[in-house]
Design a protein around this nucleic acid. Structure first.
Lengths: 206, 206
DNA sequence: ACCAACATACATACCAGTAGGTATATATAA
DNA sequence: TTATATATACCTACTGGTATGTATGTTGGT
């Protein structure tokens, strides 16, 4: 009812974002009302509309708040002096172990995969994620290009492209299934999956 | 306004189902109104509610109408006198070539992956699909168990389990990405993906 | 004093579901 | 075969509920 300090206002904003994420994960994006979000955050609709224009904006805010784009890790992968295969493993494992230990990140991907309809204003979000997949593929390709021929006898540009894409597909499939079932260790499942692909490529490692 | 014959009634039912599928794919399940569906089928809400109880029921009807469960093909895979690896390839390629050539099936999986929120009544659908994945894994495992040790030196029960799961994950990831982007040939991409997994398993083929 | 940070109340609109009617197909009896 | 009864396949009109967004009020920070 009264005016809050800047810190308190930022706190209600964060609370609204977190409430929205949890509700989206429970009830789906389209099935969650603004009043639901406000109630969970212990404020009213007025507060929501003060901080956000509509549902789409809080959706974007959720992503800004919680998601850690994997492409930030591309530089790490490409760092000199590292074994390429090992750096891929490390990067991917770093990402997924972070997801596995964060309920908010799990909720975020749960929403992304199973609780959101990518139409209208949300369609751009889907397009973005598709582009991210191809970007990740390119990053993998760059790193795989650095693998020495001694450990990869049948290495070729075409194979690099194909393996990079398959790597992304494999990780995506494993991740999505895990988010849906949440059984077993995500990190180790992803690690095993990656190992199979790299072996299938003919790369010798470990 | 007048009563239709049984065949005509069945025809409007089919038209309602098809309209619902296309609209779901365009606008999402939750964002499509019953009136939308009726209008596209050139009838009124009355007709819709005569044939279906609500949105969930037409969703189920869509699946009954168009989906061809992959598990029906398990028996084909397990048929005697066939090379196990080849039968896996054939079965999977048969399924995906069918999807690739059918706009309705593409729309169906587009809805499943990107245009539906799996909450409330729809949650059971997600659970079912998760179970299907595990069932498919088991089918793969059964077939892989028949692979001769001469072409699979490091064969083991644990490896069979792991490879079966990875196969499912790989196919899922490839399929989902293809549905999202629809670039290139689905069938050949899936074939290549599978080949990598089988090679990664240490199976010699072709 | 003024504006940020909300709360309250409300206008608007839409949407699911239903009640009741209607005209014909179809089953049944004669 | 024909007359009749009844179920079927819708359409129209309406209700009740709900959600979005806004307009306005309130109060305490700065």
């Amino acid at each position: 009812m009264a005016r809050k300090t800047k810190e308190e206002a930022e706190l209600t904003r964060k609370k609204l974002i977190k409430s929205a994420l949890l509700l989206f994960s429970e009830q789906g994006v389209a099935h969650t009302t603004i009043t639901d979000i406000a109630k969970k955050a212990e404020v009213t609709k007025g507060a929501f509309y003060w901080h956000f224009k509509n549902r789409l904006e809080v959706f974007d805010a959720i992503i800004d708040e919680y998601s850690t784009p994997i492409e930030d890790q591309a530089d790490v992968m490409l760092k000199e002096g590292q074994d390429p295969v090992e750096s891929i493993f490390n990067t991917v494992e770093f990402f997924f172990s972070k997801v596995e230990s964060s309920p908010e990140l799990i909720a975020l991907y749960d929403v992304s995969y199973f609780k959101c309809e990518y139409t209208d204003e949300f369609a751009s979000r889907l397009k973005f994620e598709q582009e991210q997949l191809l970007k990740t593929k390119d990053d993998f390709a760059k790193v795989l290009a650095k693998v020495e021929a001694s450990v990869w006898p049948n290495k070729s540009d075409d194979l690099i492209e194909q393996i990079s894409m398959s790597m992304v597909d494999m990780i995506l499939g494993t991740f999505m299934r895990w988010i849906g079932s949440r059984s077993g260790s995500l990190t180790s499942q992803v690690r095993d999956s990656m190992a199979i692909v790299l072996k299938g490529a003919g790369i010798k490692f470990n």
